[in-house]
Design a protein around this nucleic acid. Structure first.
Length: 572
RNA sequence: CGGACCGUGGCGCAGCCAGGUAGCGCGCCACCUUGGGGUGGUGGAGGUCGCUGGUUCAAAUCCAGUCGGUCCGACCA
């Protein structure tokens, strides 16, 4: 490809509406252009990077006998009603009607569509197992698109679905896909981790995320060398030793004027935050459909994890925090002076509090706290559980202490079981002629997100540093004297010779000054650059520069050719 | 949806508070110059100041509404 034929212009300045370096670089380099919020045109360079990554994904999947298909992007309402997700997904679904009033949505994911596709093809146990995938644009009407391709409304995703006879075999498929993902992301040459995750609205009971590690990642991860989890779901492993000594002291009220926060209370009483108890009030929707107010008691130093609470109490929806007015009505005191003693609503207690022989809590009387509070003696505990966020410094599963870092979720694997096959009526007849539901797994990779995540992970102040694996081009030729016939001819020779060797080569043949071309070459960030100019040309030399290291060498035409092939092959 | 903010040539911004002929830098076009890290000069093209309504002799500027966008939260590949 020659620059003069691409229609691409670079931007000198950082666009005002970009918040991440990778987003700014992709826009400046002409890789992407926003059409509307969350909707992007991929320019010629971006398309090549995307295709290279897609091909890595295809190669690894095909190698393990997964088979590519392509489903429609527009899907009828009926299948979404059958899986009961038409309402559940609600706003995320871009819904529409055709001229006769028939309702459709743009596919945000394809569990329904694939179930419909396979159910006619699976009749007997002999028809299983298999695994299908597609690479396709998805549409989710995100509430807040941001960071360029990181959270776009329309984006490219690889989604795969496995179909097995039983749970054991399905879990093997899950493991297989997990290892395929490891192979895929390893080829990108950027650090990534597999972490325990929430299965969200997709459902199922086992799921892990693949994260590319990056300082500006949207998710917080907690890791050790051998363990990793998304902070959202990370369990607290260190099972606290319950204090055997229970205080026998009587409850004692303490006057705590104007003390509203745990921090203030800690300073006032000269007691660490971890030895205080705080209480939170929430409204929960229980499986019975009943909406009840509850209280959750935690150490002062801990933070309530709503995901864990929801999971543990099997709640239908996200719990909602009560307002100050409601809290006052419930406890008799303003937030800051509330506690469990004397409450009429159920009190759930984080198990961390069992380490304390007694608690210091609010007295349910403004400006007072109580000491020597003993659970069960002074208030009823509905149940004890792991309700807090794990945090840096806690122990991981392997008894190492957890480190915190940030990551970008680029892949997700789910074991679904029969969540969809049951609803969508996907079954087979076993050897005894008995009807059995198919066990499914589903697996996603955000193609466009991954490409940007790689940029986020691999750039410097001058521009992008593409890994060879997904670089739009491997070699960038800067033709420095586009008006000198001999130099032009020489550059064209190199361009053609590399093309003949199947090297992806890009030629900057614009009538621009060398400085401009150098700046743009750094910005675009292809792995190797060759400067072809009249000055060195007189001595029969061209300059080869490695983008990642900045290493430069002046070589003859033939040597450049050899070095290029050497470097590129080494990178695979 | 809750909170904060922004809409002025392709891009980045000033002007608005204190209403009175729409400006700067980059980019673009022409000519000259320069030619190995965004060359210098001269001349030029390009804007109903997001939209609608109001106040006013007069609105980019004040007021109201509306649309679009950005950032912080809940959601997710």
């Amino acid at each position: 490809m020659k620059w003069s034929e691409t229609g691409v212009k670079t931007l000198r300045e950082v666009p005002a509406d970009t918040a991440l370096p990778s987003h700014a670089l992709l826009v400046r380099g002409g890789f992407i252009k926003k059409l509307s919020s969350g909707l992007f045109t991929y320019g010629p360079f971006m398309v090549r990077a995307i295709q290279k990554f897609e091909n890595i994904v295809r190669e690894e999947l095909n190698k393990k006998n997964c088979v590519e298909i392509l489903m429609p992007m527009v899907q009828p309402k009926e299948i979404w009603e059958q899986s009961e997700r038409w309402e559940l997904y609600s706003d995320l679904l871009q819904k529409m009607k055709n001229r006769s009033g028939q309702e459709f949505c743009l596919g945000p994911t394809h569990e329904e569509a694939i179930s419909d596709y396979v159910k006619n093809n699976i009749k007997s146990y002999r028809d299983l197992p298999f695994c299908l995938y597609q690479i396709q644009s998805k549409f989710r009407d995100e509430i807040r698109p941001r960071f360029g391709l990181m959270r776009a409304r329309e984006f490219i995703m690889k989604d795969a679905y496995s179909f097995d006879l039983d749970e054991e075999k399905a879990k093997k498929s899950y493991e297989k896909m997990r290892s395929i993902y490891q192979a895929i992301f390893s080829r990108l040459g950027v650090p990534f981790r597999v972490v325990k995750a929430d299965s969200g609205e997709i459902g199922g009971d086992q799921s892990e995320e693949f994260h590319i590690l990056a300082d500006h990642g949207e998710d917080e991860l907690l890791l050790t060398d051998s363990f990793a989890a998304n902070k959202e779901v990370c369990p607290v492993f260190s099972s606290p030793e319950a204090s055997t000594v229970k205080s026998t002291d009587e409850l004692e009220e303490v006057h705590t004027p104007d003390i509203k926060t745990i921090e203030q209370l800690s300073r006032f009483l000269k007691v660490p935050e971890s030895s205080l108890a705080k209480i939170l009030f929430l409204s929960c929707c229980f499986p019975s459909g009943e909406i009840k107010n509850i209280a959750v008691l935690l150490r002062g130093s801990d933070e309530l994890n709503l995901y864990k609470l929801k999971k543990c109490l099997k709640l239908e929806k996200e719990p909602v925090f009560l307002t100050d007015v409601e809290i006052k009505k419930m406890s008799g005191a303003n937030p800051g002076s509330c506690g469990p003693v004397g409450l009429s609503i159920p009190v759930y207690m984080d198990r961390e509090l069992k380490t304390l022989s007694s608690l210091i809590t609010g007295a349910n009387k403004d400006d007072y706290h109580v000491k020597n509070v003993v659970p069960e003696r002074d208030f009823k505990v509905q149940s004890v559980g792991d309700f807090r966020y794990a945090k840096e410094g806690d122990m991981g599963l392997d008894d190492q202490s957890l480190r915190s870092c940030r990551g970008i979720e680029v892949g997700h694997v789910f074991y679904l079981g029969d969540k969809y096959s049951k609803k969508m009526d996907v079954f087979y007849l076993d050897q005894k002629g008995k009807k059995q539901t198919v066990k499914m797994g589903c697996y996603g990779i955000g193609i466009t997100r991954t490409v940007q995540a790689v940029v986020e992970q691999s750039h410097n102040k001058d521009g992008i540093i593409w890994p060879v694996a997904i670089a739009p081009f491997s070699v960038h030729i800067c033709l420095l004297d586009p008006n000198d016939k001999k130099t032009v001819e020489w550059a064209n020779n190199l361009y053609q010779s590399l093309q003949e060797k199947k090297v992806d080569v890009f030629l900057d043949d614009r009538d621009e000054k060398p400085g401009v071309k150098f700046k743009d070459a750094d910005l675009l960030g292809f792995p190797l650059r060759v400067n072809v100019g009249a000055r060195d040309g007189k001595a029969g030399l061209m300059e080869l520069i490695e983008r990642r290291t900045g290493k430069r060498e002046k070589l003859s035409f033939d040597k450049v050719l050899n070095r290029v092939l050497e470097v590129i092959n080494m990178s695979f």
